[in-house]
Design a protein around this nucleic acid. Structure first.
Lengths: 236, 236
DNA sequence: TTTCAATTGTGTCATATATACACTAAAAAT
DNA sequence: ATTTTTAGTGTATATATGACACAATTGAAA
């Protein structure tokens, strides 16, 4: 069989950005690195791509290993390949972006990897170009959540509209008008009223909704607009 | 210096999708492959990443080599890495997406690479997973052009509103209302009236505009909405 | 058991934006 | 001069958005 006349050594890694939402803040899953170089420092969860696995399979492997979760929302973000991004060797890293329902994760697995959930505004400096990866992932989350219904991926199966609003307020770090938010959400037809009520509340109990998964898939590509205009970089 | 204990061989390639617009159709720059395997078949322009170059530098090198153009609109699209995508060897390819002003390109360079400008609807089947790459690039062009002012990258420096409209009609393969289109465009404040008129027309001459590059950069992230509602997968 | 504080749910009005559609103007060919 | 083609602008209607007010539910405190 033909082989390409390539002699350079460029390694191929995968790094994963895993977002969760605890009802108040967006959190990021970070690990204390357990190999050289930069051992002991904070970084994203990553690993080298195996010769027999597809990129998405590699990402799923890394995320499953860390969280015990399968079948979650994952997309490829971007590939980082600056020549000196890894001081040890030329390594190109394909970065994946994952959204999980935080209470579903396997906290034992997280602990075993020296990993922690850290609020975005409290995150430590990370190794290599991982800070840049995270910044870009946050920007992507904001961008995408304004256009597509991906917020649900961060919430439990049953959720209330006030919960959903807190999520969007956390993503955009800005207060939203309750009434307009609720109207917009309900008008999408993506929410199914389960009839039951939230018991966590100390005051009036909110209605629990679930996602209409069939419509969700149908409408995924439609443009939403949950980012308030004031957050848009420039008004037209 | 530390080296990673990686023994697998995974090659890293770059493939470039170059779009142009001839005033009527969106065109794609394709080459007849001159190396094994699949020699002689149509493919995207690509090459292996060099050990001493950044990803974007590699992409710029490949595009410059093919078109003689520098400083054009390039963005990373996605990385393709299915295990058997290249029958010769495990190769992961980072795909770049470029928009050029078609009349600026170096047609000698294109000819020397056995390359041609081909309309989207007449493109031949491509090698490996290049068809999938192109489909995704078209989708990306449609998506992005609906939200950001990237259309200008495909037009000459001076252009008319009817030209711009034909471009958007080509991108979305759908007719647009002249009057509403014009109003929307002018209301962005991105167009500067140069005062002169287009001489190519056999009837009334259209006003030539140029892009307000300062505002363009400022407003790039703002959301546009030139994709007609009817093209949106589902109305909300 | 009444009152209070906190939170949820819904309605309304003014304004902005989008869409559909009709007319006038310019230029070259006849 | 008339015709044909394309460019440029205006307007009425529907729809969406944003600002804002009030009523209802709940547990806890008086």
């Amino acid at each position: 069989m033909y082989r390409y006349p390539v002699t350079s050594r460029i390694l191929l890694a995968i790094d994963c950005i895993v977002f969760g939402f605890d009802g108040k803040d967006i959190k990021l899953l970070l690990v204390k690195r357990n190999l050289e170089p930069e051992k002991g420092k904070w970084s994203l969860m990553g690993g080298f791509l195996r010769e027999e696995e597809d990129l998405e399979v590699g990402a799923a492997r890394i995320i499953f290993d860390l969280t015990g979760l399968n079948n979650i929302y994952v997309e490829q973000l971007e590939t980082f390949g600056k020549v000196n991004r890894d001081p040890a060797e030329r390594t190109v890293s394909v970065v994946f972006f994952a959204l999980i329902q935080i209470e579903e994760h396997d906290s034992e697995a997280v602990k075993n990897h020296n990993a922690s959930w850290i609020s975005l505004d409290q995150r430590p400096g990370l190794i290599f170009d991982h800070d840049e990866m995270v910044s870009q992932a946050i920007e992507h989350l904001r961008y995408k959540a304004a256009l597509h219904p991906i917020g649900f991926e961060l919430l439990p199966e049953l959720f209330t509209i006030p919960q959903l609003q807190k999520l969007y307020e956390a993503i955009y770090n800005t207060p939203l008008d309750r009434r307009n938010f609720s109207r917009k959400l309900l008008s999408t037809g993506l929410l199914i009223d389960t009839g039951s009520k939230n018991n966590n509340s100390a005051t009036k109990k909110a209605t629990l909704y679930k996602l209409d998964t069939i419509r969700y898939k149908e409408k995924f590509h439609a443009f939403w607009n949950f980012m308030p205009d004031s957050m848009k970089p420039v008004k037209l």
